[in-house]
């Protein structure tokens, strides 16, 4: 039995010890925003925050999260109001097919939490573990820059 808080909501779950955090979120809690891309911690599509720090949930066990707080892409918007990062990805065209987007958005939020006004180099270094096969990354970098500007306003 594990107790974890996901997007502010407390859960008590009986999970097998080999269950990944990603599968727990998707199949036990129905939070299908986080995606499985590579399954080996390389592509970043499964990025979530564990106590505010970003991790690849496909190579984390659900039991790791016992007593801790998980934030997924579903937890970023406040009611109808999108998180500034989400809004910026829409405004600046930071996605095309969208499969990597939940991971990109969560990683970008973690970046701006850590470095509110990152340089382009800092954005690229932080985001290097979030692969995108559509955008060529330029629009993602622009989206994050736009979100940082929004936060500044």
């Amino acid at each position: 039995m594990i107790r974890l808080t996901v997007n502010g909501q407390a859960h008590e779950l009986d999970v097998p010890s080999y269950r990944t955090l990603l599968d727990c979120l998707r199949y036990d809690l129905g939070l299908t925003g986080s995606k499985e891309g590579c399954g080996v911690g390389v592509c970043g599509a499964c990025t979530v925050l564990l106590d505010g720090k970003m991790i690849s949930s496909c190579i984390a066990l659900a039991v790791f999260a016992d007593g801790r707080e998980v934030t997924t892409v579903e937890g970023l918007a406040e009611d109808e109001r999108l998180h500034p990062v989400q809004q910026a990805f829409m405004d600046a065209g930071g996605f095309q097919c969208g499969i990597c987007t939940p991971g990109q958005v969560v990683a970008a939020k973690a970046l701006l939490d850590a470095i509110p006004h990152p340089s382009e180099a800092e954005i690229k270094e932080w985001m290097l573990g979030n692969l995108c096969r559509c955008t060529g990354y330029y629009k993602i970098v622009e989206s994050i820059q736009a979100a940082a500007g929004q936060a500044r306003a």
Binding site: G41, V42, G44, T47, L50, K53, M54, I55, S56, I59, A60, A107, A110, E125, W126, M127, L128, G129, N130
Partner: peptide, 9 residues
């Protein structure tokens, strides 16, 4: 070693 996500672990 790895990405920012991996660095956290």
């Amino acid at each position: 070693i790895g990405s920012t996500q991996v660095q956290g672990r």
